[in-house]
């Protein structure tokens, strides 16, 4: 099992950063940066208008990095592609407490849990030093190979490769959120830049 923790400070207020985070996968200008994301759908949403709470579940369909040959043999034929990549459905569960200015996001894979389990937990909170101006972001990623994959004797390598890809994509995701924040900032000022 591998666990990675990351932190980042956005120099934008909480409401802007969380608005940007919602747009991360659906913003047309982000398609190139997040090209591993094939499709995103909202599957559930609940809005508690009395308490100011929002709960949503989205499916995120991603292309995996090319898999080692041995693991490919464990996949059903439908999942394999000539390049050795596979398609994976993840589910992202988000909860926003607007009065408390808290947003929590958990992403888990729902495909192939017999081989690998990935969980990514993120939080967005007002930064303790400048709560009205900055946002503190934390993210913990846990990757665990199942015994079936361990039998393949490549589990450790797979975990590492998977983790590397996750970290790359997390960094891209941060860049995308930063860019959308700047766009929203300009838009709020009444002068949205023409090129996002």
């Amino acid at each position: 099992m591998v666990v990675y923790t990351q932190e980042h400070v956005y120099r934008h207020p909480w409401d802007r950063v969380t608005a940007a985070a919602w747009r991360k996968f659906t913003d047309p200008a982000s398609r190139t940066a997040l090209s591993h994301v094939a499709d995103v759908h909202t599957l559930q949403r609940r809005v508690d208008t009395a308490a100011g709470r929002l709960h949503a579940e989205r499916s995120i369909t991603v292309r995996s990095p090319p898999l080692p040959f041995i693991l490919r043999r464990l996949l059903p034929a439908a999942a394999a592609s000539p390049s050795g990549a596979a398609i994976c459905h993840c589910v992202e569960t988000s909860t926003v407490d607007a009065p408390g200015r808290a947003m929590d996001v958990v992403v888990r894979n729902v495909s192939l849990r017999g081989i690998i389990e990935v969980e990514e937990r993120s939080t967005f909170r007002p930064h303790p030093d400048r709560p009205d101006d900055w946002t503190q972001f934390t993210q913990e990623t846990t990757i665990r190979c199942r015994p079936l994959a361990k039998l393949a004797a490549v589990a450790e390598k797979v975990e590492t490769r998977c983790a590397e890809r996750f970290l790359q994509n997390s960094a891209k995701g941060r860049d995308v959120v930063e860019r959308i924040c700047r766009y929203l900032e300009a838009e709020a000022a009444g002068a949205a830049p023409s090129a996002v």
């Binding site: 995996s64 693991l71 059903p76 439908a78 398609i87 993840c90 894979n109 192939l112 081989i115 994509n169």
Partner: peptide, 12 residues
């Protein structure tokens, strides 16, 4: 990102 498959039997 992570490994997976779809339930659909699409070749792509």
């Amino acid at each position: 990102m992570v490994f997976g498959r779809s339930k659909s039997s699409s070749s792509a």
